[in-house]
């Protein structure tokens, strides 16, 4: 599998990272080096192997589905780059 410039552009967009056009060829090259390294995994026989979901065989704890925290909007908004009237502010999303 080889990544071309078009694929690199698409991946950058999916990752929501702006990459300038002139950076794309080098980026595609770096991806291909890393993916070339990853391709070694194709040598492994994985027939009948279940993909690992949890490294320690443990049952995740359950708890009652109820609110346990909250009620401090000022703390939540404290680090926001732009907060107004109790809300996070962002550029217009819908026309």
């Amino acid at each position: 599998m080889s990544i071309d410039i078009e694929t690199a552009r698409k991946v950058a967009h999916l990752a929501r990272i702006k990459v300038e056009e002139d950076r794309l060829p080098a980026l595609a090259g770096e991806f291909n080096t890393i993916l070339g390294f990853i391709e070694q995994l194709n040598e492994v026989n994985i027939d009948g192997v279940e993909p690992m979901t949890s490294v320690t065989p443990m049952r995740l704890k359950r708890r009652v589905d109820e609110v346990t925290d909250g009620g401090y909007p000022e703390k939540i908004l404290k680090n926001a780059p732009d907060a107004r009237e109790g809300f996070f502010a962002v550029p217009k999303v819908v026309e």
């Binding site: 990544i3 694929t7 690199a8 991946v11 950058a12 999916l14 990752a15 929501r16 990272i17 702006k18 990459v19 980026l27 770096e30 991806f31 890393i34 993916l35 990853i38």
Partner: peptide, 19 residues
């Protein structure tokens, strides 16, 4: 994200997005 993440983090986020 382009300004905030350095090159290695960008690279890994994009590889992760691809796989």
């Amino acid at each position: 994200r382009a300004e905030g993440f350095g090159p290695e983090v960008q690279r890994r986020v994009m590889i992760g997005t691809y796989v």
